[in-house]
Computed example of a mutant assay.
Amino acid sequence: MHPIHSPVVVSPKFSVCAALIAVTLWSIAPLLAELARAAAPLQLTALTLLAGALATLPLSRRVPMQACSLGWQISVWLGIPVLIVGAVSSYFIGMRLAPAAEAALITYTWPVLFVLMSQWSRWGRLQWASVAGALIAFSGAAILLLPQALSGGFGGAASGYGLALLAACCWALYSWLGQAVPVSLTPLLPRLLLIACAITCAASLVWEGGAPLPREEALLAGIALGLGPYGIAMVAWDKALRFGQASLVGSLAYGVPILAALLLVLAGVSAFDWRLPTAALLVVVGCLKAGR
């Protein structure tokens, strides 16, 4: 199964601008998630995905999926919605169980995982620079977790950190599939988000059956999450991957941890600590090293 490259010639500036839009919107996601903290996490996930589907609805059009193999069709219609559900719900739940800035930073290690997947799928091996970059990036996350580990364990936060890492893996695999799939995901995104929303609604009914509806602030924050970070940003990211160079596009996403941490500190959600900017810088440096 080899991707069919688009015959359309697009300026490299287009992919860079699209990636920057996605990066900016993703940077505000942790802050919006904190504002929606009062909502049940799966209920918030369903609301976010529904808003994202509505935001991307004008882009929907028919795609010749019959030209793809059965494996790719299953990957698109089932695999991608499951990855979206896993990424968004794990992220929201992880930020409830662990400090917001730390959980967000762990999630934003996904670009280095995406670079490693891209290299392995293209060449069947990993470059030493990429492995070193991954170690540097995850050492940044380790700086944040080390004090808790030395003071007697993580407590309930360990599950939150694990879910944040799961969200990172889901986003990395989603990005890899978005680059490898033989068709553009943008026209399919509204339907994929609706499928993901249906899956999340079913899960919410099972595990959060009695959860009250979100209040006004949480409701607005959830809608904003869907319209921006999980709506427009996902379309922009798909366009950037489709028409841009993977290493260049991936490197632009490395600024998300610093911007997200800065916004959380400025908003008063997270207290300023020297470990936070140091860890964010290490994540960015590690991702840049891996991208090269």
Rank of each mutant, 00 (worst) to 15 (best):
G210I: 04
A203T: 01
S247Q: 15
G250V: 06
L225N: 08
G222K: 02
F243Q: 09
T200A: 14
P229F: 08
P257S: 07
R191G: 15
A246I: 14
L185H: 02
P212I: 03
L185A: 02
A196H: 07
V256A: 12
E217M: 12
A236V: 12
A221G: 10
P190M: 15
A180V: 03
G222A: 06
A233I: 14
A202T: 09
R242H: 15
G178D: 09
I232N: 00
A202C: 12
P257C: 05
E216A: 13
A203C: 10
G255I: 10
S247K: 14
G178Y: 05
G178E: 10
A233K: 13
L219N: 02
A198Y: 03
L213V: 04
F243C: 02
W207I: 06
S251W: 08
L266K: 13
L219D: 03
L248W: 03
L252Q: 05
G255K: 03
M234H: 11
R242Y: 04
S251I: 11
Q245I: 08
P257M: 08
L220D: 04
A198N: 00
R242L: 14
V235M: 11
A221E: 04
A236T: 11
A240F: 12
G210D: 13
W237C: 02
S247C: 09
V256Q: 05
P187S: 14
W237T: 10
V206E: 01
L189E: 08
G210K: 02
G231K: 14
V181K: 00
C201Q: 09
I232W: 13
A198E: 07
A253R: 01
K239A: 05
I195W: 10
L252H: 04
I232F: 12
C197M: 15
A240I: 12
I232A: 15
D238T: 02
A233H: 07
I232K: 10
P187Y: 05
S251T: 15
C197V: 02
S204K: 01
P187A: 09
Y254I: 05
P257A: 02
G226E: 13
V206D: 01
G178M: 02
